[in-house]
Design a protein around this nucleic acid. Structure first.
Length: 422
RNA sequence: GGAGAGGUGGCUGAGUGGCUGAAAGCGGCACCCUGCUAAGGUGUUAUACUCGUAAGAGUAUCGGGGGUUCGAAUCCCUUCCUCUCCGCCA
């Protein structure tokens, strides 16, 4: 959520920059400024009214104490008008505040100046590309065939137990998955991230804090009996650790990593793009989250990007890094880099990580602040990224490391797996 | 799930209708003093919003929401949470 004073003081700039996200902010910004003015005016009026009736009440108290009952009763009558007025004003105030908030949450985060203009993923800018893409000719098998042959991931079984998009990993498949999780976590811990195991169900306040609610409600599984939501990403519980928190400046940056399963309803497309591990309702992901000082958040973003790149390099997967354009970048992000690994059998790039700086957009919702040198409380910047999402890494590993004898395990994973071939 | 008790500032803990944004202690910060150290002294120490260039002033906040009252941390209702006992259970 953007800060109203910022909108008020940088009206034109906000409108221009939001245009990069293909968001026409002109009307809504005007409405917000008007609502804010109304809010402030009402606030001032209400405060004055309350101040008056507080004074009267104090007088009445004094009069009672000194035995001046008649005068006290006379003053009581005077309070009636003030009370009615303050009730009216506070109603106006709260409805104005609600309206204002409703408008505010409709405005996306302002994109960073380096975000390329564009309408869709076609316009994302390839920042770098690394690793050798093997040429297996037409012998390359897609991962869904390989996992069936080796009996390491069973999609049909998942359908029987739950439904489509809930695969069963078994044998070496399960072991490889667990190896990847541990490997990712270890790399993150090595980089200074504190490991946390958060709840996998969150309440609605948390959903609001990270922006899933109220708009993207359909994306999450809702446990209606207890009014809780299954997390679509560890970002939700982990970032909400810091909701309503004022941290010490010297504690920044705060770095957390968490492995969690992720649950996504993602009502939508079927077919080739969602075959196998490409898109699931339940999947595993290791997430990294940073809370940073506003002056250092872009340095932190670069470091996170480099960290993820290092892991992909170690795994020996060909990958590229994209800077998302205005049309593809998420609502809440100021700058996002996507990581894609190449799937040689599907002959396409698969997104395996998305690393973003939200600047103060999330912090404003979360009320996540730090005390600055001038003792002012200032919003922190928050960042997060996947490090990494498991299914597509698994898919790419299986496809890229296949040969006539089976599937090879990358060097770094062998100690975690306990085997070197499937 | 049943029966009780309770939720007050960074922490401990007082406070049962008005002068309590909140005693006291601890902790934190600043300064002073003692040639060092231990100790001592003085002051300060919440958050948000509004008005103001500022100094400052006002308003709200004692788990959340609602109510009674001229006036609520204090009374009533409701909800969430914590603790103790019983039951159930990985």
């Amino acid at each position: 959520m953007l800060q109203v004073p910022y909108i008020r003081n940088h009206k034109e700039e906000v409108i221009t920059k939001l245009a990069v996200k293909n968001f026409d902010a002109k009307d809504i910004i005007g409405e917000i400024i008007a609502l804010d003015e109304k809010r402030r005016k009402t606030q001032a009026e209400l405060d004055n009214t309350l101040s008056e009736s507080n004074k009267l009440s104090k007088d009445i108290g004094m009069l009672y104490k000194s035995g001046n009952i008649d005068e006290a009763n006379a003053k009581k009558v005077e309070t009636a008008d003030l009370k009615e007025k303050s009730q009216e004003l506070s109603q106006v105030l709260s409805s104005t505040e609600n309206e204002l908030k409703e408008k505010l949450v409709q405005i996306p985060n302002i994109p960073h100046e380096s975000v390329p203009v564009g309408n869709s993923e076609e316009d994302n800018k390839v920042v770098s590309e690394e690793g050798e893409i093997r040429n297996l000719g037409n012998t390359a098998k897609p991962h869904w065939e390989l996992v069936a042959e080796k009996n390491i991931i069973d999609f049909e079984l998942g359908v029987k137990i739950t439904g489509a998009g809930f695969p069963v990993y078994r044998g070496k498949g399960a072991r490889l998955q667990r190896a990847l999780i541990n490997y990712f976590l270890d790399k993150n811990i090595e980089e200074g991230y504190e490991e946390v195991i958060p709840p996998y169900l969150v309440n609605e306040y948390s959903g609001f804090g990270t922006g899933q609610l109220p708009d993207k409600e359909g994306q999450m599984y809702h446990v209606t009996g207890d009014n809780l939501y299954l997390i679509p990403t560890a970002e939700v519980p982990v970032t909400n650790i810091f909701r309503d928190v004022i941290v010490k400046k010297e504690d920044l940056p705060i770095k957390c990593t968490a492995y969690t399963p992720c649950f996504r309803r993602e009502a939508g497309s079927y077919g080739k793009d969602v075959r196998g591990l490409n898109r699931l309702h339940q999947f595993d992901k290791v997430e990294i989250v940073q809370i940073e000082h506003p002056n250092h958040s872009y340095k932190a973003l670069d470091a996170m990007v480099e960290h993820v790149a290092k892991i992909l390099r170690e795994l020996g997967l060909p990958f590229r890094i994209l800077k998302l354009c205005g049309g593809d970048i998420s609502f809440t992000s100021a700058l996002t880099y996507d990581f894609e690994v190449y799937s040689i059998a599907q002959e396409k790039w698969l997104e395996v990580s998305s690393v973003s700086n939200f600047e103060s957009y999330q912090s404003n919702r979360l009320k996540l602040r730090f005390k600055d040198d001038d003792k002012k409380t200032t919003l922190c910047h928050s960042l997060n990224g996947s490090s990494l999402a498991l299914p597509r890494i698994m898919a790419a590993l299986i496809e890229n490391y296949q040969d006539a004898n089976g599937i090879n395990i990358p060097e770094v994973l062998i100690p975690y797996c306990g085997f070197d071939k499937i």
